[in-house]
């Protein structure tokens, strides 16, 4: 019984990460845009939905008690807006400037959620975020399964939409732009506009993912959106195979499994007073894994599908 409960919990968290990874895949895997501020877009989604759907609390702006779907949609919209702004600002410039700017956005969003206390609860974050199927909370198994089913359905829906987009003319041009910018330009397609659109779509998915996580866990705080989150999601995408949506989902589940298992191992083996220290080794491992894959298996487990022979 306990195992089943843990498995549903694990599955739900892993799939919520899969959602973020899918968003990153649109930006990086399909378009080649480097986002070092994944955590920022997830945070914006999480906080937007939390502010809109929580009941009113004294001393805090927000708490509109709106229905959950409204919160989720608004989360996607808010993150999309931020992504659009960032992309509009930097995509005309060099690729490395986009990386630096998204890094800055992560710092700025972290600063904002930490300090805009009346809106975000400051360092303590927002609690009592309504959980889906809250009425069933008295039956943990049913409640767990319902949540897992909801997150799985969301992942499936987003996967379906993204696959459709990737196969649509829009997706094909996007690939063309990634492969050969000048040729795409010659066809009269503005690479810049396409890239901004892709970055925005990816941002929207990350925002939605942030809302899903926030509502599943029930509370959020600034420390949930540190750069480590960005690293984890990158590792997930790179492990799974960037460019491939199924790879993104697989990578998320796999990396989260390794993360959770190594966390459990540290919890079981390392004495309590050293656990904080050992946890940093866990992060070292993610960083090393990221570098190792870039060095030895740049395609990931499921490389991008159509490997057309390079012509020249």
């Amino acid at each position: 019984m306990e195992f089943v409960a843990y498995a549903t919990f694990f599955g739900t968290v892993a799939l919520s990460y899969a959602l973020i990874t899918l968003g990153l895949n649109v930006q990086w895997g399909q378009t080649g845009l480097f986002n070092v501020g994944v955590a920022a877009f997830v945070a914006v989604g999480a906080y937007t939905s939390a502010i809109l759907t929580t009941p009113a609390t004294e001393g805090r702006i927000g708490g509109f008690d709106l229905p959950l779907p409204v919160g989720w949609l608004a989360a996607a919209a808010a993150a999309a807006l931020l992504a659009n702004l960032v992309a509009w600002l930097t995509i005309r410039l060099r690729a490395d400037y986009l990386a630096i700017t998204t890094f800055g956005v992560a710092v700025a969003v972290q600063l904002a959620v930490l300090n805009l206390t009346p809106l975000t609860g400051g360092p303590f974050g927002i609690t009592f975020i309504p959980r889906p199927f809250g009425a069933w909370a008295s039956d943990p198994a049913l409640f767990g399964f319902a949540n897992l089913a909801l997150v799985a359905a969301t992942v499936l829906a987003v996967y379906a939409v993204l696959e459709c987009l990737a196969r649509s003319p829009w997706g094909r041009i996007l690939r063309a732009v990634r492969e050969d910018e000048t040729a795409a330009e010659a066809l009269g397609k503005s690479p810049r506009r396409l890239r901004i659109q892709a970055f925005t779509v990816g941002g929207a998915v990350m925002g939605l993912a942030g809302a899903v996580q926030a509502h599943f866990v029930g509370f959020i705080a600034p420390e949930n959106f540190l750069p480590t989150l960005t690293f984890q999601v990158w590792a997930m995408l790179i492990v799974g195979g960037s460019g491939n949506n199924r790879g993104a989902i697989l990578g998320a589940v796999l990396v989260w499994a390794i993360w959770a298992a190594s966390g459990a191992l540290i919890g079981a083996v390392v004495p309590a007073e050293l656990q904080a220290r050992a946890a940093s080794l866990q992060i070292v491992m993610i960083g090393l894994a990221l570098c190792a894959i870039l060095l030895w298996r740049p395609g990931g487990l499921l490389p991008d599908r159509p490997r057309r022979p390079r012509a020249r």
């Binding site: 490395d96 480590t228 220290r277 866990q282 070292v284 960083g287 870039l294």
Partner: peptide, 23 residues
């Protein structure tokens, strides 16, 4: 490797080094 892959590697190295120092 593309510039952006090297940037990503530096990102991974940054994380590993920082946490290593913390350890």
């Amino acid at each position: 490797a593309a510039v952006i892959i090297i940037v990503m590697a530096s990102f991974g190295a940054s994380l590993a080094l920082r946490s290593g120092i913390e350890f």
